[in-house]
Design a binder for these strands. Structure first.
Lengths: 328, 328
DNA sequence: CTGAAAGCGCTTACAG
DNA sequence: CTGAAAGCGCTTACAG
């Protein structure tokens, strides 16, 4: 068997330097099993000195740890819609995995049709799955023995920890700002109905608006800027006196602003507009919004599946903070 | 050795069904080596019937094929700047690799300091590297024996095939459109000077403008919308009578438009603005630009490193087409 | 053309 | 607490 002499350091290099067998080195590195304090320390030192990172390919052959973390994106159709949000999630995941020599894959989880999760979980090359935008129905397929290897960015379940932004609080903050600054006829442009996380924002909007003694006005969008424009047209037709728009996300808010400006309706003096997410472009556009730390969320989710704890980790929720700019 | 019984099909399943040894199955699957036509056919059929995909983890232990494709992003500083473009590249790569059970990693290639490429190429878990935004200097580190395992989105070299959009033709088309529609004082906002691909656009601008008997007017930007705004301010100060702006990319063009509008300079009647890339938001913004098929480029580059041909593949260049919208 | 064997880098029962 | 051995799923010389 001939292969290019790899300069990569293996566990036998570590074992040799520590003066132990590779069995002992393996146990010491795993941090569990009976290992004498002396051996433990020498192995740890040798590993650091040699910058040893275990070969996940070899490991995947013997354990349930894999070589790949797959990001499963729930999509209405069979094709995967890649948007900027997803790009940020997968970039963050791939950066974090790289030093561990783990790769990331991307797969669509169609809303209807067979759930790809079970096959993924029985594939010895997959370390775990990070679900994005998932639904209760898809979460049903998660069996107790997948625990620790599946985490969800969005809603969770008994077996699946959730990592997410506090949509509700962020949306509430943004709507509350509108109310405080005197807006009374506040329209919300929502996202697609199948998305659980979008429902939390709608709920927050409803609560704040009702608490202020105002009426709710809701128009459906789909997260795109174009849908923001269309929804704004519809809203203006239905409620010509509206004085504020809260959009489910920044892209939709930018669409709303474009539509308003094209009708010479001044923002924010005539109509205030707020978004959600604080996308990179929002600062430039002067959009008032609430933060959504996408990278930190993706990193936390990735870290959880890299660790693959036997027990279900706790849910993690990142706060969403109001960012005041010019649009409201 | 206990592990959860994997439901995954292995090469021995294929061999058994085809009635041959796993050695023969392996050879047949590889498509090379002496295999009888009969065996070849039975193995091929068995593989299809069982939906067999070789386990890259096992394969990586014995060959120079890895379990992971790494996207190497050349960055001015040590930290990796993730923008929407990179998100699209890595999403496309990760989608394409997933069915092969290969993951993707993401690593910064700092402009200064040690080049991470040699270490990556000797890591048995890496299948190959897709370089993004690379420079001549970084390409120097590519040795002949990396051939076929490194491809560059951007400039190439003797050993490294390049996959890219035809920046020059796209930029030329966009500037030519400006000239044809009567613009005479055309300013270009460029990108950072260290980026070779940005130089091609500047060259195209220069050629077209000079051929029309006009003078070149160049201001430096950095690909961001904010730099487009700032560069536009500078340009207006220097050439108050400018009648067109060609931006190195759409984000910068959007910045230029915002700055012009904030000064009540009408677009396109007073000043025409064109971008480059045709980003998703460009359609919404009514920006005249030229196409940049990022996903197709990323897929071609990914496919090349997945195949890892022994010989350097040919360069691939995708055409860039003018997209006429409202801004020019 | 074909199969048995060795070996890649790990982990994990199994005996000491 | 420790090491020798087996085995994960492949590929590739090596003998037939």
């Amino acid at each position: 068997v001939a292969r290019a002499a790899s300069t990569t350091v293996t566990i036998v290099d570590v074992a040799r330097r520590a003066g132990v067998s590779k069995s002992t080195a393996s146990r010491a590195l795993a941090g569990e099993g009976r290992v004498s304090p002396g051996a433990l320390e020498r192995v740890a030192r040798a590993a650091v000195e040699l910058s040893f990172v275990p070969n996940p390919a070899a490991r995947a052959l013997v354990t349930t740890r894999g070589t790949r973390l797959v990001v499963g994106v729930v999509s209405p159709g069979p094709t995967l819609a890649v948007d900027a949000y997803l790009g940020r999630v997968i970039s963050a995941a791939a950066s974090l995995c790289e030093p561990e020599r783990i790769g990331v894959g991307l797969q669509a989880f169609p809303l209807t049709g067979p759930n790809p999760l079970p096959a993924l979980m029985s594939d010895p090359t997959v370390q775990g799955v990070v679900l994005v935008n998932t639904t209760e129905a898809l979460l049903q397929a998660v069996q107790p023995d997948f625990a620790g290897r599946v985490v969800s960015i969005g809603i969770g379940s008994v077996f699946v920890p959730s990592v997410d932004v506090d949509n509700g609080a962020g949306s509430a903050a943004v709507v509350r700002h509108l109310v405080k600054s005197g807006r009374r006829r506040i329209v919300m442009i929502t996202g697609p109905h199948w998305l659980p996380c979008a429902r939390r924002s709608v709920r927050a909007y409803t609560d704040v608006v009702r608490a202020a003694g105002l009426t709710t006005r809701i128009v459906r969008g789909d997260f795109t800027a174009e849908s923001g424009r269309i929804a704004t047209m519809a809203a203006l037709r239905r409620w010509p006196d509206l004085d504020a728009v809260v959009a489910i996300c920044d892209a939709t808010a930018l669409g709303a602003i474009a539509e308003l400006r094209s009708r010479s309706i001044a923002v924010p003096s005539d109509v205030a507009v707020v978004g959600f997410d604080d996308i990179p472009f929002a600062e430039f556009a002067g959009l008032t919004t609430a933060t959504h730390p996408v990278e930190r969320i993706a990193e936390a989710a990735t870290r959880a599946v890299l660790e693959s704890r036997p027990r279900r980790p706790d849910d993690i929720v990142f706060s969403s903070d109001l960012v005041l700019r010019q649009s409201a």
